[in-house]
């Protein structure tokens, strides 16, 4: 193997930087939507709402039980064939949809576990002083559940950022798609892919750093 072409790699950085916002935007949108959906699913599971509980279980089972890539293809290539009004769905939308549903299924279960994990006696204490169920949730249960759920949710966010790279299979030119094109032009596959690998790596490490800081703050109340 010849020596790495560093000049090429350095030159690639500003090109790839142009596609970074799209990658981050897809991950941010997917995460925000997935959080909302997952909270809803978790509450349905915690309360055990009769009909909805079954639907939720089926949803979670399907989106955890099938590969994300299959789900993305299903949305992008499959859905327009069965849903007439969706003559065309663009790759970015399909990616965000897939990420949302896929990760919401996982996150719902960790949020549910975090809610259920809050000491039952605190619930009784809150009710005993006359709090309503809503006040109990907002002021006592959810703040504590958040602390428990945040590390896991951050890990899912990190996974999601990496999973955005699958969007290139739907023809979206994000970080991975752009790298693929550059590499195909230069034939310097190793340089191109090691560069994009470092991109993802740096993003993830930055996030992990934020995660540690956030956890320290959230744990303040529990230090002895």
């Amino acid at each position: 193997m010849s020596v790495l072409d560093f000049d090429y790699m350095v030159g690639l950085v500003p090109i790839l930087l142009r596609y970074l916002p799209l990658t981050l935007a897809m991950a941010a949108a997917g995460m925000a939507l997935a959080l909302v959906l997952a909270c809803g699913l978790a509450v349905i599971r915690v309360l055990g709402i009769p009909g909805l509980n079954g639907v939720t279980l089926l949803f979670i089972s399907f989106f955890r039980g099938t590969p994300l890539l299959v789900q993305l293809f299903l949305f992008y290539y499959g859905l327009p064939q069965v849903l007439a009004f969706l003559t065309q769905i663009d790759g970015i939308t399909a990616t965000i949809m897939g990420l949302t549903l896929h990760f919401a299924a996982y996150m719902a279960e960790s949020i549910r576990a975090a809610i259920v994990g809050v000491d039952r006696s605190q619930t009784e204490a809150a009710l005993s002083i006359g709090m309503t169920n809503g006040q109990l949730m907002r002021r006592i249960v959810l703040p504590q559940a958040t602390r428990v759920a945040v590390p896991t949710l951050m890990n899912y966010f990190i996974d999601m950022i990496k999973a955005t790279s699958l969007a290139f299979t739907l023809g979206v030119t994000e970080l991975m798609g752009a790298t693929q094109k550059e590499a195909a032009g230069s034939f310097l596959y190793f340089e191109a892919f090691i560069t994009v690998a470092v991109f993802y790596w740096v993003i993830v490490e930055l996030l992990a750093w934020c995660q540690r800081r956030l956890e320290t703050r959230l744990n303040e109340a529990y230090r002895r």
């Binding site: 000491d119 006696s121 605190q122 204490a125 005993s128 006592i140 109340a221």
Partner: peptide, 14 residues
């Protein structure tokens, strides 16, 4: 009525 619990049941986040 106010309740004092055997295991205190303080709000851990407060």
């Amino acid at each position: 009525t106010a309740f004092v619990f055997q295991n205190y049941a303080l709000f851990a986040n407060k």
